[in-house]
Design a protein around this nucleic acid. Structure first.
Ligand code: ZN
Ligand code: ZN
Ligand code: ZN
Ligand code: ZN
Lengths: 159, 159
DNA sequence: ACAGGGATGTTATAACATATCAATCCCGAA
DNA sequence: TTCGGGATTGATATGTTATAACATCCCTGT
């Protein structure tokens, strides 16, 4: 399981690889991976952290790529629908996906200190909850699994 | 597992019982279960549905119990901290707890049709995710597990 | 009476998100 | 070429959710 975001890694390569995957994915799906959308994904990828829509917007604005909220929300909407990013409901914030467009139902470990986000998969978790849902006749379409706490880096310094 | 909220039940008794439990719980814990807080819980209990803070506020206002946002948020804050209600992060809304103050980590089944909410327990789910967290050195403090979909009642009528 | 704490009243504002319409661009059909 | 439709972006305004800050009230112990 990937604890990317908490582990040190060659992040420049990490970003480049993710961007390449994203580009390929969009090409394959016939999606229009425009400059604003590319930049938005780059910004999210740059940090393995949850970014608010307005944080993203501020960074886009620095590049002259829009300054009104809809710009950010439209880009995020595209990325989320394309499976290139996820919304962290508990923070009303967004994070780049580390599984490059593959179909999956993510689970997150979210640090309340630095907002770093690690993405795992919920197959089993969702199966568990799935039993309960089936018993109730409930049809699950989407699951949100978010664990909040402290990452290794934030456990030492700040008590 | 309780699929209360999706099953028919004697709801008047259900509310009365929950209110009694809440009162007892607050008394035992030395918590100040004031009229506004009682009314807020009653309003949440009346429906086994997620209510927005401003929906709650509107209903409180009808009873002359406050008309500014902080009134609702303070009541909700109290109820959540006391374990008498939960926040549904995926909806930015709130629901009464059906486990009357007992220590627990809830998981929810949320209908996108009628916003009905069923509350289950997540012990195993959390254990699963717990392994991943442990492997990453992540310390979990709180988990959000929310499955969205359609409840039995909303599956028939609306295709 | 007085101080301190908890609860509430009130005003203002921050933070997150969407509706709506105009302008632009691209591409294929006529 | 010219036209029209679809997708994207620009811009304005507004809606929704949440909190900061400070005043007031009430109770309680000294
Ligand atoms: Zn990286
Ligand atoms: Zn951290
Ligand atoms: Zn009931
Ligand atoms: Zn329903």
């Amino acid at each position: 399981m990937a604890a990317i975001g908490f582990c040190a890694h060659d992040h420049t390569a990490c970003v480049a690889e993710m961007m390449a995957h994203a580009e390929a994915h969009c090409a394959a799906e016939g999606l229009n991976f425009t400059p604003v959308r590319q930049r938005a994904l780059e910004i999210l990828l740059r940090e393995h952290r949850a970014l608010g829509a307005y944080d993203l917007l501020a960074q886009l604005a620095e590049d002259g790529l829009g300054s009104q909220p809809p710009v950010a929300y439209r880009a995020l909407d595209f990325l989320v629908k394309a499976g290139l990013a996820h919304k962290i409901e508990a923070l009303n914030a967004y994070v780049a996906c580390v599984h490059s467009g593959a179909e999956h139902t993510p689970a997150f470990l979210i640090c309340r200190g630095c907002r770093a986000v690690a993405e795992a998969d919920t197959a089993l978790t969702s199966g568990r909850l799935g039993e309960a849902a089936a018993a109730a006749g409930f049809h699950i379409e989407r699951t949100v699994v978010e664990a909040q706490g402290l990452c290794p880096a934030c456990q030492g310094p700040a008590p």
